[in-house]
Design a protein around this nucleic acid. Structure first.
Length: 115
DNA sequence: TACATGACTCTTA
DNA sequence: ATAAGAGCCATGT
C-alpha cells in the first residue's frame, strides 16, 4: 500500500523505454536515465538491466551501451559473446567490444520520443 | 539506520 | 591517451 498507482517502479519505466529501442539501433544508460527523468541516474539503468533477466517480456538490454558505445554489460549475459552476437545479428558492427558508427546507430529517446 | 556495492558519467591531472 | 577521484541514487545485508 505504500505504492502509488500513478507511479510505477523505476525499473518498470526503464524497461519500457528500452523496449522502445528499434531493432538495429542502440542507446546509452544516460539517455535512458534522462528519458525517465534522470532521477535515478545512469547507474540505476544498468542496475535495472541486471534485474531484467528476471523480467518478462524480454528486455533488449544488448541495445543499451555506455556513453562510449562500449559493451560494458556483456559479462552479465548468459555468455560474454551473447551481447555482441545479438548486436551483429541486427546489423550492428562491433569491434573490440565497441559499437562502430555509434553516432549513426544511436537512438535517443529524448528526441525520438519527442520528450 | 548505516555501510558497501554497482551493466554510469563527468571533470581534472 | 590513460588514470584517478567525485557525484549520483537504488538495492541488499
Amino acid at each position: 500500500m505504500s505504492e502509488k498507482p500513478t507511479e510505477q517502479n523505476i525499473y518498470d519505466i526503464i524497461y519500457q523505454v528500452v523496449r522502445l529501442v528499434p531493432r538495429g539501433r542502440v542507446t546509452s544508460y544516460g539517455a535512458i536515465a534522462a528519458a525517465v527523468g534522470a532521477r535515478s541516474g545512469a547507474r540505476m539503468v544498468g542496475y535495472a538491466m541486471n534485474a531484467c533477466k528476471n523480467i518478462k517480456p524480454k528486455v533488449p538490454a544488448h541495445r543499451v551501451l555506455n556513453r562510449n558505445g562500449q559493451l560494458t554489460g556483456k559479462h552479465h549475459f548468459s555468455t560474454p559473446d551473447e551481447m555482441q552476437r545479438l548486436l551483429e545479428k541486427e546489423g550492428i558492427t562491433v569491434k573490440r567490444d565497441k559499437v562502430m558508427d555509434l553516432e549513426k546507430l544511436f537512438w535517443d529517446p529524448l528526441i525520438e520520443l519527442g520528450i
